[in-house]
Amino acid sequence: MIRKVILCMLIALIFPACGLKAGGDPAALQELNELSDTVFQLTRQTQYHEAVQILQYFEDRLKAAEKSEAEDVMTATEIRQVTLAYHDVLKSLEDKETEQTDKLKAAAQFRMLMDALESDHDPLWSSLKKPIMDSFQALKAGIQKEDGMTFQEKWNHFLSLYDTIYPSLTIDVPPKQLKSVSSHIDVVEHGDFQQMTESSKLERLTALEKDLEDVFNQVEEDDADPSLLWVILTTGSIILSTLTYVGFRKYKAEGDRRKKREKDWPK
Rank of each mutant, 00 (worst) to 15 (best):
S126C: 11
L84D: 13
H184Q: 13
P226D: 00
G142P: 07
L139P: 03
D120C: 06
Y162H: 10
L7T: 06
R44L: 08
D147C: 03
R258L: 15
T150F: 08
T101F: 12
K63W: 05
D88I: 12
F58K: 01
E189P: 10
M196D: 02
F136I: 03
C18A: 13
L208Q: 13
V89R: 05
K176M: 11
M74E: 06
Y245I: 14
I54G: 03
D122I: 13
N217M: 13
L113R: 03
H49C: 06
P266S: 08
L233T: 06
V73T: 15
F40D: 00
I132M: 06
Q53K: 04
V181A: 12
S92I: 03
H184Y: 13
A253K: 15
K129Q: 11
A76W: 07
K201Y: 04
A76T: 06
I79A: 06
G236W: 01
L35Y: 00
L178R: 02
Q47E: 08
R61W: 06
E66A: 02
M74N: 09
F136R: 01
E203D: 14
D25G: 05
D102K: 12
R3P: 06
E213V: 07
F193P: 00
S36W: 03
Q100V: 12
L113P: 04
E71C: 07
S241V: 10
I143R: 02
I54R: 05
P174G: 01
A138V: 10
Q194N: 14
L84F: 13
D115V: 00
L159N: 00
V52A: 02
S182M: 15
E262C: 07
T77A: 15
D222Q: 15
R249N: 13
S126V: 09
Q30S: 13
M112E: 01
F151T: 03
S135N: 12
Y245V: 14
D256E: 13
K179V: 09
P123S: 07
A141I: 07
T164W: 02
S182Q: 15
Q194P: 09
C18P: 01
D223Q: 10
